[in-house]
Design a protein around this nucleic acid. Structure first.
Length: 105
DNA sequence: AAGCTGACTCGCT
DNA sequence: GAGCGAGCCAGCT
């Protein structure tokens, strides 16, 4: 373990990922952010945000990150939907009401 | 080295 | 309102 790739696992997410996680972590309960909005905040592309989530989602409120159309990331089940409702997030059926729930950081 | 896949979004039909 | 395709970046096989 003297390689950089190993160090990342030991120290944590790189600056870019850390930035994304920090943004998500500061999203207040009852509010959500879209991948595109976060990506724009960090000056990156939505795909990059999704990649960060795949590796470090467990370190942040991943359920507060939804798709541009308001659909929660149903990657590992619909538990995100339950969590959002549990926080009192403005919902419209199974979709988040971005008009009221979207947080612009 | 090349190609595929993936927690994405937008525009067009 | 719903479906399809294209663009996009990085990591893994």
């Amino acid at each position: 373990m003297s390689e950089l790739s190993n160090a990342i696992s030991e120290e944590g997410p790189p600056p870019f990922a850390r930035r994304v996680l920090d943004i998500i972590d500061r999203i207040p309960p009852g509010r959500v952010m879209t991948y595109g909005l976060i990506a724009d905040t960090v000056d990156a592309h939505p795909r990059l945000v999704g990649r960060v989530m795949t590796h470090w989602a467990d370190e942040t409120q991943w359920h507060r990150v939804v798709y541009a159309n308001g659909t929660p990331a149903t990657c590992h089940g619909n538990n995100a939907l339950v969590l959002l409702r549990g926080e009192g997030t403005p919902m419209h059926g199974d979709r988040v009401d971005l008009v009221h729930a979207l947080w612009d950081g």
